[in-house]
Every structure is written in C-alpha cells, then in structure tokens.
Design a protein around this nucleic acid. Structure first.
Lengths: 86, 86
DNA sequence: ATAAAATGTCAAGTATACTTTGCACGGAAT
DNA sequence: ATTCCGTGCAAAGTATACTTGACATTTTAT
C-alpha cells in the first residue's frame, strides 16, 4: 500500500533568506537515505534534514560536496533566483 | 616610480580548510577598491579583506553574489581543488 | 500486530561568518 | 613634508552553520 502522507517539514517563517535546494529530490532519485548522504559528504544526518527542510543555508564547502556527489554544479543544486539582485 | 611592496596578508596556519579565491585578482582586473566591491555585494570592506586574505571562507550566498558580480560561476571564483575527495 | 528503519524536531553547545570601531602603515598626490 | 586613500589587522559582539543526544511519528518489513 502506498503511503498516504509524506514526511513533512515544519516551515519557519522567521527567515526568508534561506536558499531553496533540490537536495531532497536528488537524494530520493539516487535512492539514498539522509544518513547515507550525510556520511558521504561528511556531516551528520541532522544537518541534511536541516538543509532539506530549509532551516538554514549550507556552507560553501558543504554545498560543493553535495553538488559534486550528485555530479552537478552548485548552481544546479541550490536555487539562487531569490537572492537580491546586485 | 613603481611600488616595491604590495599589500601583504599575514598568513594564519591555524586552519588549512579555507578556500583559495580569485577575488583579489578579479577585483584588481576590474579596477575596483575593496570598499566598492563590498558595497556592490552588500558586505563590509573588512569582509572583503578577510576573504582576499583567506581568513575564512565566504558563505554560499556571498560567494554567489561575488561570482555573479564578475559574471562568473562560483566554481570559477573559488578553488575547490583541495576539498577532501568524496 | 509488531518491530525496525527513516524522517522531523528540540535544546544546548561549538565553530564559523560577518559587523563595528579603531588603529597602523605604505603609496600617491600635492 | 603633509595629506589622503587603500589596505591589513585586532578585539568584541552578533548571527549563522553544524554537532550531539534524545525523542516522536511515519513507513517499511516481518
């Protein structure tokens, strides 16, 4: 039986400056658990959860490691479209 | 008379995990002061100094803004070659 | 029906990114 | 020689990124 509910993230409206990411969908496409991805890029599972639920924005180095793990560029994994124009 | 000395950064050997950047050379190529670049990307001059002297690594959003200012990708401005392989 | 695996969350702590202010020094111009 | 500009630095403070450990709910497997 298919699941009726997904794991849901509690959305925080305190900060509007957190980058949207494709981490969750990329991870599922590669059939990985958060734990496995965390191990692969050298952080804890909670950090992956936080990034997927957009609690904060990854550091530059972590962003690179995640992108590289999926064979993509940083710009392909994180959505910069809402960064204030220069 | 040509200058004999450049502005020099005191190198800290405490951390070996700070990304090398092309910010200083790009800024000079564009004939900008640190102050002007700082204003353009929305940080203080001291932050630009710190990044150029590699005191710490920029955040993902700041890295994006700097790269975009120069019309480059993040990967073209920051050197990820020494990031631990996955 | 039960157990195990996967995910989300919270609190407290450490580490890193960035700000603010102020000072020192070299180079350029007058 | 004096002044101004650009740069490097330091200390203290705030904000954000990440860790650790523990717990609740959902999903998957038995």
């Amino acid at each position: 039986m298919q699941s009726l509910l997904f794991f849901l993230c509690k959305v925080s409206y305190e900060r509007g400056d957190i980058l949207k990411t494709k981490i969750a969908s990329l991870r599922k496409k590669h059939k990985l658990t958060q734990e496995e991805l965390a191990l692969a890029v050298g952080v804890t599972r909670q950090t992956i959860t936080s990034l997927e639920c957009e609690k904060y924005t990854a550091s530059l180095v972590l962003a690179y490691k995640i992108a590289q793990y999926f064979g993509l560029s940083i710009e392909e994994v994180f959505d910069f479209s809402e960064v204030e124009e220069l």
